[in-house]
Design a protein around this nucleic acid. Sequence first.
DNA 1: ATTGTAAGTGAATGAACGTTCACTTATCTT
DNA 2: AAGATAAGTGAACGTTCATTCACTTACAAT
Lengths: 196, 196
Amino acid sequence: MRTRDVNKESAIQEKAIEMIVKQGLDGFSMQKLAKAANVSPATLYIYYKDRDDLISQIASQISVRLMETSLKGLHPKMSFADGLELQWKNRMEFYLTHPLDVEFIEQIRYTPTYASIKDIVRQKFGDVLGKFVHNAINRGELQPLPFEVYWSIAFAPLYQLIKFHTQGYSPTNDCFRISDEMLNQTLNLVLKALKP
Amino acid sequence: MRTRDVNKESAIQEKAIEMIVKQGLDGFSMQKLAKAANVSPATLYIYYKDRDDLISQIASQISVRLMETSLKGLHPKMSFADGLELQWKNRMEFYLTHPLDVEFIEQIRYTPTYASIKDIVRQKFGDVLGKFVHNAINRGELQPLPFEVYWSIAFAPLYQLIKFHTQGYSPTNDCFRISDEMLNQTLNLVLKALKP
DNA sequence: ATTGTAAGTGAATGAACGTTCACTTATCTT
DNA sequence: AAGATAAGTGAACGTTCATTCACTTACAAT
């Protein structure tokens, strides 16, 4: 049996991400991808069932990697401030090393395709995160809040900063770059908001 | 000269939004839109230069309406807490009355198309918002912060909540609905974070 | 009532789309 | 060395795409 060419699969994924980030989901086609990845269109269908499957497989792989990175070193018994800082720094690191992957996910996140992916992520990582938050509340380091409220305060600001950084501008700034200082400043505001 | 049929244009816009929200940007085509809006494909090209123009015209109209609604009743001299609450409530009201419009914008926001739209919005509304924030800082009601930090704390949590509501679920909840109480709770956390 | 004009059309265009098929090629097992 | 098998291919399929064109229709101005 002929063996799979590993370079081929990663070339496909890399080019797909690149194309979708640069031209959007509607500017993306199987034939263009095949050409960009130096592969026959038919080869794509060895790796993926169809176009939808290609997009959602790539998206869920990235999502899982993002979550794994983001939770690296997190112990449920960590202090809340330390644990949240760790997650922020981990996410930021993932973004800095894989910016296209994050932009890709952001683009998928708001399409109907994303519905299937969230299940996988929640199933794999819901446990650890749940315990971390639960412990922090029990220790009195975190207000008891509906999970959605907690999440929207704890992580939405980080994603917004990353988005400004990604797009290179914000509502009042044409050439925005995130700085470590700014990240820490925002994190401290978030911690202040969530403290009992 | 024959007069334009106003119903026609709004039918086109309404169906376009509906289709893109339900099937995503790539499941959207001019011919399907024409059929859904009971119009000839050629008619679309009377109203819009091409497909891209159609999408970005609709998107920027919605963006402007959203900002107008969100700033309704805002005076730059308002207290910061009142002004921010007003903007949150206004935005939430816009979402409740035009949920599809907001989902449509969210979907465009992360595509390359959005770049052109942000200019229009900033140009039209940057002034009022800038003054409001400036006054609040001078009065000592708001920490002086980089605008991006301010924005990510002040509004990202609201958008995250709306997103949970829109999608009908959050990381730990399969059937999430936003409540007034939850909105107020989150707003208070945000105000707490931003207070000097 | 006639006419000028822009609104509106259905059918047609060629290009690009996702996908498949008959086929070749590389590698593992024997 | 031969055979088995999955990887990989280029050309082709029917479909759908965005867009255009020759044409009709409705209305305002005259």
